[in-house]
């Protein structure tokens, strides 16, 4: 086990940031307040961008710096700002979106991490890049975001979960293949940006038609009051 201590500091930093991102996804899963969830999401974006910059520095791939800046601007600043602005206009900034069975949800998240680790073991054998240990974390991030999507009721926290899922995919790209081609990355960044704007418009539509952002109401079919 002494081999870990002999790694260069930058590789230890990359692993520490990967673990911090995992913590942020657990924190996101447990946040009940809308504003707190958005803030944790912003921190996750910041950590992700810092990790990307570290990987870029370590591997000397210049296009990763562009990804890092993109994710800093979009995921740590712009999208959280947009979400906070929209929820303030909707008057739900301080609302609670109770986590369904918080204890069980956290346990499930822990189980998912173990599951992802086991799934990724064969993948780790293929590659020799320094971030191969973090692939399991990126997959766990995707799974935990999916778990958050199904344990929340409000549209706005589901959107945060969806964005966090995209964070997980981006993380997977950075760790498994050292980033996607620039065209793809720019396309995805643009997609996410547009998605955030469209979600914003949808919030208003959902609220106008069912007078709440609680999407559980959508699963019930009933006649409109006339």
């Amino acid at each position: 086990m002494t081999a870990y201590a002999d790694l260069p500091l930058i590789e230890q930093l990359i692993r520490t940031f990967a673990a911090l991102i995992l913590v942020s996804s657990f924190a996101l899963l447990a946040q009940a307040r809308v504003v707190a969830a958005i803030q944790v999401f912003a921190w996750q974006g910041f950590l992700l961008s810092a990790l990307t910059a570290l990987v870029a520095w370590n591997s000397g791939l210049p296009h990763l710096y562009i990804s890092a800046v993109l994710s800093l601007v979009l995921k740590a600043l712009f999208i959280p700002w947009l979400l906070i602005r929209q929820s303030r206009r909707l008057g739900i900034l301080r609302d609670f979106d109770a986590v369904i069975r918080p204890g069980l949800t956290l346990m499930a998240a822990g189980t998912l991490v173990i599951f992802c680790y086991n799934v990724v073991i064969p993948v780790r054998e293929f590659t020799q890049i320094v971030t191969r240990d973090a692939i399991a974390v990126s997959l766990a991030l995707v799974m935990i975001s999916l778990l958050m999507l199904i344990t929340r009721r409000k549209a706005i926290t589901q959107v945060v979960a969806f964005m966090s899922l995209e964070n997980g995919l981006f993380f997977a790209a950075v760790t498994a293949t050292q980033g996607m081609p620039m065209v793809v990355e720019l396309g995805i960044a643009f997609d996410v940006l547009i998605a955030a704007v469209i979600f914003g418009v949808f919030f208003f539509h959902i609220r106008d038609s069912i007078e709440t952002l609680d999407v559980d109401q959508l699963s019930r079919l009933r006649e409109m009051d006339e």
Binding site: M1, A3, V23, G110, V113
Partner: peptide
């Protein structure tokens, strides 16, 4: 209990990150 759940989650993540990220 929430406070202690945070402690438990942190210790769990600590253990998992030892297995996942420091397994050299």
């Amino acid at each position: 209990p929430t406070f202690l759940a945070v402690a438990f989650t942190l210790s769990l993540i600590g253990m998992l990150s030892f297995i996942m990220l420091e397994g050299h």
